[in-house]
């Protein structure tokens, strides 16, 4: 009896046991809420499943059906357009604001917080609804424009050309997290480099392109990868503001996936769509990593 309790104690005192115990919450969470649902979703993607009745195995049918699905290609197109336009714009904007906020004054702490605010509330339903009202025919944007003589209200959300831009602008507005990352790495650039550049007679524009930008490339790369993934997986904005309307011109891939799964009850097909998205995002990330050696500066300062 005594022996076994002693054994138990030595066992608990082992370093590896402590490690396992402390990581258990994550491991359990990962297994239960990530791996298991992913496994189930993979299985559903090979099934004809409509939620109401049990899944029936159909092999690759869901995947081959995508080739005949016009809306699938439309959604892919829209999502690529959104991600490829909004992410670079957001990064440029974030870098610009970061450069402005770099100068430390008494108020800079306040401004940093203020500019970060949209990103905190950015993905929320409330902002999406606000956005929808702002761009409505009788919304704030049109009221502002009418001051400048544009009396006829423009239907921003109802026009196939402008609707996607309301979403892109919302994405650009949420530049805060990229801005903070830029800000911290801007601060790490040694002042001596700028001094040397000044001595050599470099203008501030030259300084930016020859000193700042090259040293920022690892940060830009990090931001690009993260935001690209975020961009491809955007859901809330589209689901609340446009629902893909008009004419599917704003139909994000994730929203299409949701519609198939829970509105048309083609849940098996929805799961297949999810796995295709996984592959697409994986490939894009791989592609970005492959281009890394051509433009990312990894040498020391």
């Amino acid at each position: 009896m005594k022996k076994s309790s002693e054994k138990w104690r030595t066992c608990l005192n082992k370093e590896s046991v402590a490690g396992v115990v402390f990581t258990l919450p994550f491991i359990l969470g990962f297994l239960l809420f990530m791996l298991v649902p992913m496994g189930i979703s993979l299985y559903y993607s090979f099934c004809d499943y409509n939620i109401l009745s049990p899944p029936v195995f159909t092999g690759l049918k869901n995947y081959t059906n995508m080739f005949h699905d016009e809306t699938f290609f439309k959604a892919i197109g829209v999502t690529f357009y959104y991600a490829l336009v909004s992410v670079p714009l957001r990064l440029i904007f974030a870098l610009m604001v970061a450069m402005i906020l770099l100068k430390t004054t008494k108020a800079s702490g306040f401004y940093r917080a203020a500019y970060y605010l949209p990103s905190i509330i950015g993905g929320s339903v409330a902002v999406s609804i606000l956005w929808k009202r702002m761009f409505a025919i009788d919304g704030v944007i049109n009221k502002l424009l009418s001051v400048f003589g544009l009396e006829e209200g423009i239907s921003w959300l109802g026009n196939t050309k402008t609707a996607i831009w309301t979403l892109i602008i919302l994405a650009v507005w949420q530049f805060g997290s990229s801005m903070l990352v830029f800000l911290s790495s801007l601060k790490q650039i040694p002042a001596t480099l700028y001094e040397a550049a000044r001595v050599d007679g470099a203008s501030s524009v030259t300084q930016f392109f020859k000193v700042t930008l090259p040293l920022l490339t690892p940060t830009i790369f990090f931001n690009l990868v993260m935001q690209m993934i975020n961009g491809f997986l955007a859901f809330t904005q589209c689901y609340i503001i446009t629902q893909g309307k008009p004419m599917n011109s704003t139909l994000f891939y994730t929203v299409y996936m949701y519609q198939q799964s829970f509105e048309y009850y083609n849940t098996g097909y929805g799961a297949a769509l999810a796995w295709v998205m996984l592959a697409i995002v994986g490939l894009i990330t791989l592609f970005l990593f492959a281009t890394k050696r051509f433009w990312v500066y990894e040498g020391g300062v």
Binding site: P37, I40, I229, F232, F235, T254, V281, G282
Partner: peptide, 28 residues
């Protein structure tokens, strides 16, 4: 910098898996 790259990789993986199972978490 290596650490940053590692973090990028890890975050990528976790976000990717977040994508894959979203249909199911909805159900859950």
């Amino acid at each position: 910098r290596k650490l940053a790259m590692l973090m990028t990789g890890l975050l990528t993986i976790s976000m990717l898996s977040g994508c894959g199972n979203s249909a199911n978490t909805e159900t859950d």
